[in-house]
Nucleic acid binder design. Structure first.
Lengths: 215, 215
DNA sequence: GCGCTAAATGACACTAGGTGACAAGAGGTT
DNA sequence: AACCTCTTGTCACCTAGTGTCATTTAGCGC
């Protein structure tokens, strides 16, 4: 029985992730309040209560400190697509998201940070690179997911084109929604965002992705 | 007559661009030979024969030194689309590119650098961010071009979705072609790359972009 | 609870990326 | 020629980020 994989002294994955998330929130707050350039690593470290050296062990550089925040929605989206049943349409499946989203205040304040960073990423070049890299990772995940669903190779150029186009339209819609919310739009007045995404993906993939497929 | 716009002492735009290009070539060479991380700003400056301080006046940071090389094909592509006549299909118009491309050896060696950096950008994260930012600029340009062609507003979400999807598929095809050429593929054996791009754009935009439109 | 061990952290020194300020040099104008 | 203005180099300086090693801490067996 190789039951116990944890080595002595090793922190739990959860604890590590919680620290990363904590850093990310503080970094996002500081970036929002005073801009990226004006925020130093020292400030971020101090805000979380870590030494600067330790900060750089959690993140390779200043900008990527907000990566967990920026990647939040994208990672959820990918996870959602991973459990997309073959006999269900994309639009129907995406509704799961809306239902599953918890409404606790901590989650909501985090969502606020996600929106702020998404908006900030439109103007701050240093954050834009992080945002684009995040979407690049999503694209690579979609290649696998689409290849699986279409029963084609992940190397198939068509599959990669579909993944790239789908990721691109989802990103643009995310940016659009974030900007609208940031401008004070009522979340309920936004209409069926997920439906819009599903239709955009269907269109951008030339109809190849979105409909139910043979089991 | 405000004939003379040149101020005393000011360098010509062309000269500035030539220097940027020269830096870019050397940076690309060094990045290729020894990797991005192992290449210092000092080395790049020395290779071009500039002081380090001057190098940082031409480029904000090390990675963006290769931006002119990485942006080369994209900028040409955008320029090509800007003069796309309304009554011509995309596929037909793109043929102009193949015809116009000069075959002089200097251009060819530069093309080699473009291919190398495109391939390198797939693995080197620092270069990937530059590559993605380059494509982001292309996307913004396509928004304007598509808006103009479709007689819609650049703020129109549909227009932006089309631009994003189109840029994404063009990027993926570029990456694919570069990898193939780098692997030693015969350029003539690649088939109709431009035709492939035109069809991919047509598909990714749901047929909205690619056909001739009303004048 | 008590140790044990390996990982996590902090402190310090150090390199590299980059900027501000100012003086020297180069280009064009008269 | 003198003159003006932009460009370049030099130097001082700051921040981002790494290597190293001593110290602390988290989890495990008891």
């Amino acid at each position: 029985m190789t039951k116990n994989e944890r080595k002595p002294g090793r922190m739990s994955e959860q604890r590590q992730q919680r620290i990363r998330l904590e850093i990310s929130r503080e970094a996002a707050r500081l970036f929002w309040e005073q801009g990226v350039a004006a925020t130093t690593g020292e400030q971020i470290a101090a805000a979380v209560g870590l030494s600067v050296r330790t900060l750089w062990r959690y993140f390779r550089n200043k900008e990527s400190c907000v990566e967990p925040v920026l990647a939040q929605d994208g990672d959820e989206f990918v996870a959602l697509l991973r459990r997309w049943p073959r006999d269900v349409s994309l639009e129907d499946h995406l509704m799961e998201w809306a239902i599953n989203r918890t409404k606790d205040p901590d989650q909501q304040s985090f969502d606020q940070a996600v929106i702020k960073m998404t908006v900030l990423a439109e103007k701050e070049p240093d954050l834009r690179t992080v945002w684009l890299m995040t979407n690049d990772r999503i694209e690579r995940a979609l290649v696998e997911i689409f290849a699986d669903r279409l029963r084609r190779s992940p190397d198939d150029i068509e599959v990669r084109l579909h993944a790239a186009a789908a990721t691109a339209v989802v990103r643009v819609i995310s940016e659009d929604i974030s900007a609208a919310l940031m401008a004070g739009a009522d979340p309920t007045s936004l209409g069926n965002t997920l439906g819009q995404m599903a239709r955009a993906v269907h269109t951008a993939t030339g109809g190849a992705v979105g409909d139910p497929v043979d089991p």
